[in-house]
Structure formats: structure tokens, C-alpha cells
Design a protein around this nucleic acid. Sequence first.
DNA 1: TTGTAGGCGTTATCAA
DNA 2: TTGATAACGCCTACAA
Lengths: 337, 337
Amino acid sequence: MVITIRKVAKRLGLSITTVSRALDGYDDVADRTRARVIRTAREMGYVPSRAARQLRRQRADAIGYILPASGSQFTDPFFSLFIAGLGDEATSHNFDLLVSTAAPGGTAERQIYARWVQSRLVDGIVLNRMRVRDWRAKYLAQNNFPFVAHGHTHLRLDFPYIEMDSRTVFILLVEHLVERGHRRIAYIGGPRDVTLQGDRFAGYQEGLTRTGIPFNESYIVEGDLTRNGGYHAAQQLLALPEPPTAIIGANDMSAIGAMRAAHERGLVVGRDLAVAGYDGTEDSEHTQPPLTTLKQPTYDTARQLVRMLIARIDGKDLAEPHVIIQPELIVRASTGG
Amino acid sequence: MVITIRKVAKRLGLSITTVSRALDGYDDVADRTRARVIRTAREMGYVPSRAARQLRRQRADAIGYILPASGSQFTDPFFSLFIAGLGDEATSHNFDLLVSTAAPGGTAERQIYARWVQSRLVDGIVLNRMRVRDWRAKYLAQNNFPFVAHGHTHLRLDFPYIEMDSRTVFILLVEHLVERGHRRIAYIGGPRDVTLQGDRFAGYQEGLTRTGIPFNESYIVEGDLTRNGGYHAAQQLLALPEPPTAIIGANDMSAIGAMRAAHERGLVVGRDLAVAGYDGTEDSEHTQPPLTTLKQPTYDTARQLVRMLIARIDGKDLAEPHVIIQPELIVRASTGG
DNA sequence: TTGTAGGCGTTATCAA
DNA sequence: TTGATAACGCCTACAA
């Protein structure tokens, strides 16, 4: 049996107005009354109906996040961390987090965004793994719907985001490898339409330029940011007549797959082949050998994004709508550290 | 500007009733009218307000899942897969998925369950990583709130669940190791209050019994089901005067941590030390060497759980309220395969 | 086949 | 300081 505000009011011999106001902390309620109301409400186990409150206040106190993938191949710890960060921060603001999954670019994805926005199921949305021409950002901006993003898009849109300065740290990484004596440095990228790919690849290229290493087309392979993608890409690279002595993955998953390919060919990673990744989630510490990586603060970024989003939902102006964070180069044994 | 059913009705010169009924597929609407309504509604971009519909129908069309952890150490791919499964299946039923995080056993956890249940934010809840005396199951059962679980509890409660027959496959795993010549087989467990620990440990013990290997207390270490936990537990085991020649982790994370500890001591996993885990998510294929594991169908289990939950929400009786699934022993190089 | 009207449980406006 | 009452947007019993 569900307790409504009406029942609480009746029990107390008060009007529902007073009960509502007492509970919501308005200051035009007598202290004694408020105390009575709060006590009784708790005793009766009263919790406001979300739907009713939402309907009346025109606000869901909820944010949404749609995993840009579906199906069973979805195990990049980056996303676990990201979701944990979103959830923890949302909870601390008394917001709920809605999560769904949708393969990028499909109609299912468009539908779910439309549904969430139009039905006002959530007050704001967090975007992730941004695309070069990101229709999601465009759509949300056009509908004037609050959103924040992890990363940017190439479209001319103004929205709050937190972005990693991946380019700079990829340069550092290439320099690190060159210092270790590598000249044949390969790169396993992500899909072209994802902005992280462009940024990281640009850093890779700039690193080569700065160290005077000629760019070699055959050392570039497109992966899909999964372990398996990295594995197959690396197989290809290692079968080259003149295989690379170092492989950089656009993320840790790619690098982990590459390590497997190396091992299968009998190469000792860290000695015969250097491998490095990007993300720095916990699993990169536990590979064999431990993986050199560019560590980004995924969990904290997610939390900060939620703070920014809630500020936007509340109509506040953000002091810093665009945050740039520098990932950290962590050298481990996979590059012979 | 938000489109409500009223605006659609006005535009069409119809009553909101007719619009509502046309859209919901009632058969007492003229075909021509229905066609007009649907077309106009789409044109105007009408999507029903969730809050209003929810309030009226007393139903959220949403299910909830609370990650039994919080903080930044949360990267077990098992949970990513599980969430992806929940999300995909929920979406296919036009349900939404609410996700939150809460450390097990704390007051925060109690609060969030209470809030979700009392405020009718979700219609049902999926439980995971069950505890021996699981207050969540008890609480939900007492409140007659629909829920399903991955695993069981030792409390006498009747609810639908899908359970892995971990005991049986752990026996197989021990037998596999014994066949490979191992006699000193260690076990890195999970926290005691989690039922998966009891089941898996029981299988381990039974495996020893069947193969006539005496049980050795010092080969049992309690981990926390994370890579780091497994790492520290294995350090302890390998420092023993007579260290084990095989280590079984209660899950893959523990095993992966154990492999790292082995490598750090200069042991070659698969030759000097056998290591095996449980879960079989994609990452276990990509460790060095690839990890022998007991593979459970995490993604499909999550999907099936959602189907069971939605059936319960709809008041249907389940043909099979208790499903037992046998994980599969996958032998890889980490046990010298 | 279509329309009227009541109510789901809140919050907010206004009056007492 | 408190209470009556009107929405919020939708669904549905009932009437036309």
C-alpha cells in the first residue's frame, strides 16, 4: 500500500499544502508543525511520487547517458569507470542516472535520443566518444536541451565539454619511444569518424615530425578500439616485411590486443616490441608486461561533467565551460621501462 | 517548446481522447482519423510526457540496477557486459534502465533502494552479486516489489533468479589441474558474505576431495574480486615456504592479479605456475598467457533476467522461475593448455 | 466513432 | 502560519 501526501496530511489533521511545504523546507511553516510533519512522514514511510513531482515541477531530476555500443562485445573498463563516475556524482546531487545502449549512427540511436528529449525523461544528457560531425550534439543544441560532452566535435557548436589534450601527450609518447631507440613506430587507430582518433593520430604524426622520422603509411592500421580490433591490426603490422619495433594503440584495448598478437608470434613485449596505449584504467597495470599508457582521469572527468551538466540544467553560467586536461604519460615495462 | 497531446488535438480539431486512443492503437477509432492523427503527431514531433503517463498509469516502464560498488576502482568487465545486457533487453521492451551505484551494506545502499521502491521510480529491480543474508532481497520481497536476481541468497525467500552452477564447474577445473600434475592448488576467494564465494569455494574443496588432495588452509586467501586484490593475495601465496603450483581465482580479476604477481617473481605462467579464473569476459583471451577460465554467459543472462523481470511486472507467472546454467570450462595456456 | 470529465500525486498561487 | 484549489499531461470510464 502506497503512502501519499494526502494520507500523511489526514493522519496529522493538516492540509496537504502544509505537509508539502514542511517537507520541502519552506520557512513559512511553524517549527513545531514541521517537526511533527517530518516525524510522521518518516514513520509512515512516505516518499513523494516521482512521477507526480516530475509532472508538476516539469523536471525529472535525472540525467541520461547512452553507451555508444550495444551487443555483447562491450567490456572496455573505460566505460565502467565513466558510468561509475556519472552515477556517483548524480547521486550526490539527488539526481538519477538513466543508461541505455545504442550502436552509434543507427536509427535506434536517433530514436532513443529523441525519446529522452521529447518525453522529458531526463533533464540533461552526457555525451561521450564524440564524432567528427556529431549529430547528437547538433540535435541537442537545436532543441536547446542541456548537455555536456567528453570531447569535442568538429561542428561549430557551443556547448560545455571536458577535453583531453591527447595530441600533446601523444607527442610525448612518440618522443619517449624514439629515446628508447625506436624508429619504426606503428599506430593502431580508431574509426575515422570519432574525434579522439583525429587528435591522437595528429599527436602521433607530430611526434614523428619532431623526431625527424618519416611517416610510413603501412604503419597505420585502423582498429575499432577493442581488444580484438587491436589484435587483428597488430597481426597485420607484425606480418609486414619490415615490421615495426613499437606499436601505439589509440587506447589501451587496442594495445592489449596488440600485445597478444606479439606474444603469439613469440615476441617478448618490452624487449622485442614496445607497446603503449591510452586510458590508464586499472587493467593496464596488470597486463604482462604492465602497459605504458597515457592516463586520463576518467572517473573524475565523469563526475565533473555531471556537475557542469547540473549547473546548466539549473540555468547557471559555467565559469569554465571548456576544460582541457592533460593526460599523464605512465611509463611501464611494455616500452622497456 | 514542448508539444502536448492537447496541441495535437487542437491542430486536428479533435478531442484529446481521440488522439490518445488513435495513438495507442485502440480499435474504436476510424481508420482515416487514426491515419491523420498519427501523421500530424509525427509531424509535430509529439512524444508523450513520461511523467504524466507514469502518473496516470501508475507504472514507470523502467527497471533499475544498482552497481554494488562505488568509487573509482570499478572496472570489472563483468559489470559492463551485465549492464549492456540489461540495457539492450530493456530497450527492446520499451523500458528504460536506471543505474546507480552504492557500496554494499552501507546506509547509502539502503536509502537508494528505499527511494526507488517507495517513489515508484522503477517497476522492478535486478539484483546482482547476491549476499548470503541479502537484505535487499528481503526488503524487496517484504514490500512485494518485483525483482529478479543473478544468483541466490541463503535467506528463505522465493523469487526468480538465474544461477550458475559454479560448484560443478569448479570441480571440473580442479580435476583439470590435477590431471596436469598439480597437487598444490591455491584458491583466491571473494568476501565471505557474497554467495558466489561459498559456491565456488565449495566446488574447489569438493574437487580436492574427489582427487584425494588434502585440504591446506594456507592455500586459501581472501581477496576482493579485483585485480589488485588478486595481486596481493597471490603475493602472499607465492611467498609461502612451499608455494602452490596452481592458483584458482574466484573470478578473472583475481586471476589476472595473480598472474601479475607471478610475473613479478619471474615465474612463467603456464609453465612454472598455473592460473585459472572465472567469468570468461573478453579480456581473459587477451592476457599473457591467455587465461583458463569458467565462462558464464553474462550478457545473455542479463537479458534473460530482464525478460523474467518484465514478466513479473506484468503479473505473469514464470514457467521457469529458477534457472541454473552451467558455465563452460575453457582451457587456455595459463594452465599449460 | 468521438467527446466530456475525473483523477493519478504533487507543487504553487492565492486567500484566509 | 495554514488551507482551498488549480494546474502539470495523460488515460479511460462513461456518455453522446
